[in-house]
Design a binder for these strands. Structure first.
Lengths: 190, 190
DNA sequence: ATCGGAATGTAGCGACTGCTACAAGAGCCT
DNA sequence: AGGCTCTTGTAGCAGTCGCTACATTCCGAT
């Protein structure tokens, strides 16, 4: 067999969590091999050895981050659905206010920027995360909602717009926009 | 007087448009002095001379970009308001589909990312652009709208969410979300 | 005519970039 | 035991980074 030796503790799998922790704090754009390696307790030499080159490292890292994002969402799936769209919106807002999600958002906008610019790996990771977010939202929609899928899409679009406005200092605009939306009214349609 | 000499054609004012054109194409994050200087027909030496250091150059550049964004919006103010919120949404969507706006969006997400990370100058520029966008939208809202300001905020939040989803490959999600929103219905409130 | 200051070119500094050449250790198979 | 491959350390390369020292040119003020 090719992996019969248990000697090495240094694999992609053991490296990625440490690398992810580093980019979560310091960002993706300015990340360079030596600080990355230091955060993982190795040398740039070994990062290249295990990932081939920096681009593949970033791509793997983005995939890994998308994976833990998905896992975090899945772990946070409540047992019962929301009763109304309002409550559904409240839940997702509460989720986005958690500290871990706050620090993640800083990284998220870098991923969006990389995706818009076409950097390799960024769009796939971003798309995967948004898909996951969307299906998570669908599970939270009220059971009697006339259009749960459409409602989830609507809710997510509004939410992401709010998050973006919040990131650029227009949190108030976003908050008032949400209050002016149909989410502030008791029933989705009547 | 201090600026009586017409000798030099090399000032911040003449430099900024050329620098802006460069970052519009190549991005802000990876921008370094020498390519920037080449695009402006000078040397890195002169950029430092005129702006002091790179950080101040970026801050000035962001301010300049916010300025031209505002000017572009102002130039595009239609004489008459929209008749309905739907039409208002259609206008802003049409605007966002223009080629110049498309290339600007790539830069925009970098600005959002920098703003979220707290890089100097980013948040101010982003906030200014969003404020301008909001007031532009208010001028486009129907004259008989019950809540033009609130409607503009709502519309912008939804639109920005759509643009973000579009940037990460969820354009379909965004499109369908817009169609499921109240903007797809004839009257804002009835 | 001379001085002074603003503007510009040339060269280079030290730090950092991604990456590689080379050698050596470590455990495997025969 | 002898090789073999996988893994790792040490050094270093060529290139780029932001920035600066130094010298020069040029123009207006005196």
């Amino acid at each position: 067999m090719s992996q019969s030796s248990p000697k090495s503790q240094l694999t992609k799998e053991t490296l990625l969590p440490l690398l992810a922790a580093h980019v979560m704090e310091h960002g993706l754009g300015g990340a360079s091999l030596r600080p990355l390696a230091k955060a993982a307790g190795t040398s740039d030499r070994m990062l290249i050895y295990h990932f081939g080159n920096k681009e593949r490292l970033i791509v793997d890292l983005l995939g890994y981050i998308a994976g833990i994002y998905a896992a975090a969402l899945e772990a946070g799936i409540g047992a019962e659905r929301a009763a109304t769209r309002q409550e559904c919106a409240a839940r997702i807002l509460a989720q986005s206010r958690e500290p871990m999600m706050q620090t993640f958002m800083v990284l998220w906008w870098e991923i969006v920027a990389g995706s818009a610019r076409g950097l390799p790996g960024y769009k796939d990771a971003a798309e995967e995360m948004m898909t996951k977010q969307l299906t998570w939202l669908e599970t939270q929609m009220p059971a009697d909602d006339p259009d749960p899928k459409g409602g989830a899409r609507y809710l997510m679009t509004l939410l992401e717009g709010s998050l973006m406005l919040g990131a650029v200092g227009h949190a108030r605009t976003a908050r008032e926009a949400l209050m002016a939306s149909e989410l502030a009214r008791p029933s989705p349609r009547d």
